[in-house]
Simulated assay, not measured.
Amino acid sequence: MNEIIADLMKVVTDITEGEVQPDPAQTGDDSIRNLGLNSLRMLNFLVTVEDMFGIEWEDDLPESVLGSFEQMARYITEQRDVQYA
């Protein structure tokens, strides 16, 4: 799961052209939300994550998944497990 978190953080750095560099020590509650991404960057982040990991965000996704690197990595792991089961 740490590899997924590192990949997610790299996506943030890439889409913000280095303007936002997440702290690897900050992965818990609100760790994504606290980065201050505007709506366009957040949308770009979510679309890039979908493409990178081959997942689709569910309509009833808990808000905590979109706000936390740990929760998002856990969600991605669960979605990949379902796809390959």
Rank of each mutant, 00 (worst) to 15 (best):
G54F: 13
E63V: 15
R33A: 09
M72E: 10
R41H: 13
I15C: 07
V65C: 06
N44F: 13
T77M: 06
D59E: 15
F45H: 01
F53H: 07
T27M: 12
E78L: 03
I15Y: 10
V65E: 10
G54C: 09
D30H: 06
I4M: 07
S39W: 04
Q26H: 04
D60T: 08
N38V: 02
E19Y: 10
D60G: 05
D59I: 15
N44P: 06
E19S: 10
M72L: 06
I4W: 03
N2H: 05
G36L: 10
G67Q: 15
L37M: 15
T16V: 12
R74Y: 11
F69T: 00
G18P: 13
Q79A: 05
Q26G: 06
I4A: 05
V47Q: 02
Q71N: 13
M9D: 11
D29C: 04
N44K: 13
E58V: 09
Y84W: 14
T48D: 08
D51N: 15
L8Q: 09
I5V: 11
L35D: 02
D59M: 14
R80Q: 11
L35W: 11
Q79L: 03
T48M: 05
V11E: 01
E17K: 06
V12T: 01
G18Y: 01
Q71H: 06
L43T: 10
D59T: 14
L46E: 02
K10A: 14
M72R: 08
S68G: 12
E17Y: 01
I4V: 08
Q79D: 05
R41N: 12
Y75H: 13
P62A: 12
D51M: 11
L8E: 01
